[in-house]
């Protein structure tokens, strides 16, 4: 300890007038810069977005707005494109959450068995997690286009087939975006589950094996129950990530073709920054918030039921 703080001498601290500063005051001073930035750029905007949703406002000048009450929410309720974005968001969220938890859990289990090559596989699966979704989106746009890898493979099998336009076909575009997302984030769930497996109590697993439980039985009765907290966390993070998806969709398809991949975030972006309808865009943003908060509340309820 003395080695860690060689400079400040006893005389300095006695002579220092700062002695009068209480730890509490100092704590406040330490905390204040973070609190100010946080309030200014996160707290104030959260309250503001709830207010703007009740305004007719183009966003150009503050005060240059009219109060329209619930009109923007009524507009959303009657807007088929809003409902399509809503449905796509839910579809995307459910599909990616289910798939990522299956692939993530499967690979975590297999890698935890420490067979030859599992370390390499872990790194390879995790690498895409670190890439910007923009990079992933641009890669998959090329892979899925008329001259992309998938069409090259199809033409190997049937040389006369016409190229499939995965991102240009309203029936295939959303699935394509889901595939790219699962490719990018399987490693994320794998890592979460792998970390969870490392923390499982060893003695329980051993007790199960002494009782003669096979691998399948011990996965079902020891591993999965032991992973409940991790499963909850993984699902919540996937759901929240799915509800706010923007980058992959916007770069790959711009919400098209014909709105077939439009999600809440891309539709909100369009309303705000293409059509300057800040009120309507804020109402859509509130829907994203409400869905995220709802997911978190469900998670907390589920978590507390498990502890009873």
């Amino acid at each position: 300890m003395a080695a860690a703080s060689p400079r400040p001498s006893v005389t300095a601290s006695i002579a220092s007038p700062r002695r009068s500063v209480t730890p509490g005051r100092l704590g406040l001073a330490f905390v204040l810069p973070s609190v100010i930035i946080f309030c200014l750029f996160l707290m104030v905007p959260v309250f503001a977005v709830a207010g703007i949703a009740f305004l007719e406002w183009a966003g150009f000048r503050i005060g240059d707005w009219t109060f329209v009450g619930l009109a923007k929410f009524q507009k959303a309720a009657a807007d088929p494109v809003f409902w399509r974005s809503f449905t796509h968001t839910i579809l995307f969220t459910v599909a990616t959450t289910v798939l990522l938890n299956i692939t993530g859990f499967l690979y975590a289990l297999l890698i935890a068995s420490r067979v030859r090559g599992s370390g390499l596989v872990k790194s390879v699966l995790f690498l895409p997690v670190l890439l910007s979704p923009v990079i992933v989106a641009l890669m998959w746009t090329r892979i899925l286009d008329a001259f992309g890898a998938v069409n090259q493979l199809i033409s190997l099998v049937s040389p006369t087939a016409r190229p499939t336009l995965f991102l240009g076909d309203p029936d295939l575009a959303l699935t394509s975006v889901i595939v790219a997302t699962v490719w990018q984030f399987t490693g994320y769930n794998m890592l979460l589950y792998y970390a969870g497996l490392q923390n499982l109590p060893r003695d329980q697993l051993e007790a199960a094996s002494i009782d003669g439980a096979g691998a399948r039985a011990s996965i079902r009765h020891v591993v999965v129950p032991g992973l409940y907290p991790v499963i909850g966390t993984a699902i919540l993070l996937n759901v929240i990530g799915g509800l706010r998806v923007f980058d992959l969709v916007y770069v790959m398809t711009r919400g098209g073709p014909n709105r077939s991949t439009e999600v809440l975030a891309t539709y909100m972006y369009e309303q705000a920054f293409k059509f300057s309808d800040m009120g309507y865009a804020s109402a859509i943003a509130l829907v994203i918030v409400a869905l995220s908060v709802g997911a978190a509340v469900l998670r907390i309820r589920w978590g507390s039921r498990l502890h009873e």
């Binding site: 200014l40 750029f41 996160l42 104030v44 905007p45 959260v46 503001a48 977005v49 703007i52 966003g59 503050i62 706010r244 923007f246 809440l264 975030a265 909100m268 972006y269 705000a272 920054f273 800040m278 865009a281 804020s282 943003a285 509130l286 994203i288 918030v289 995220s292």
Partner: peptide, 10 residues
């Protein structure tokens, strides 16, 4: 996405 509009104005 939830706060981008006020952030932009701010």
């Amino acid at each position: 996405a939830a706060v981008i509009i006020p952030l932009f104005v701010e």
